[in-house]
Design a protein around this nucleic acid. Sequence first.
DNA 1: GTCCCGTACT
DNA 2: AGTACGGGAC
Length: 324
Amino acid sequence: MSESAEWTLPGDADAVRDALVSWYETDHREFPWRRTDDPYAILVSEVMSQQTQLSRVEEAWDAFLDRWPTTADLAAADQSDVVGFWSRHSLGYNNRATYLHEAAQQVEEGEVGPTDRPHEDGEAVEAGGEFPETPAELSELMGVGPYTANAVASFAFDNGNAVVDTNVKRVLYRAFDVPDDDAAFEEAANELMPEGESRVWNNAIMELGGVACGKRPACDDAGCPWREWCSAYADGDFSAPDVPKQSTFEGSRRQKRGRVVGALREHGELELDELGPRVRVDYAPEGDGDGSREWLRGLVDDLADDGLVEVEDRADATVARLAS
DNA sequence: GTCCCGTACT
DNA sequence: AGTACGGGAC
């Protein structure tokens, strides 16, 4: 179903496909996670890569897998250690550390994947620990959406659909005038992907978006394999789909949340009035506005709702620590 | 200050 | 449909 026929793939689509795969196979960046087909290791790399410069991900990825080499290891870990690791490595979005931890537990408990099936009360449940292999099963994992599901299915099992991230959108938008519309991008991406070759294809098209067709295009320098078909190369219009604006981090609530997690990681447990000055230099317990004890209580309560922090009311004071 | 960016939640 | 979410690179 396509109400918008504004875009078309070139008539010789197979030549387009072959050109990209050949270009990728001739030369591409090397990343350690491209040398494994362990779905867990690939999931870790994808979750990290969603948010961080690839150079720093390499070191964090190695250290993470060294510490928790399997889903069983991660599932058994204290969540505070996982969040602490995430924070120490400046990986951002601490929620995703808890998602990854929960996803490992889902796999170990057999909640998802090939062993997933209804069972009666009292019946022995199948052991679990088998990693899901299809995009639909992978999507059941906490923190795994359409992009990550297809990336893991592709890179671990060569079993995915076309990935659609901002790199892919930009490439399709520029080269084939696919409109800035999620359904159109998904349709075009899947029409273009050679059947059953998701591993090499998704690697190749994201490499194209990262190396040749970035925000600043490098068509000739990167030897873009699609120049002869590319609409943007022909008319010089290298505009890209709109990306949502980022609110400023300095002074933001996100910054204060990060400081709470950092302080609790460092000290283990703190009373609110010990935590406050580490979050805002102008912390002033009395009152009810920003920077007050009441404000801080609201902040740590939200972190508790997110599963990142534990808050305990004692007779004399309220204490906070990273969630175990 | 701007950019990066997929997912969960409302 | 819109918003929250981290912190480093530039």
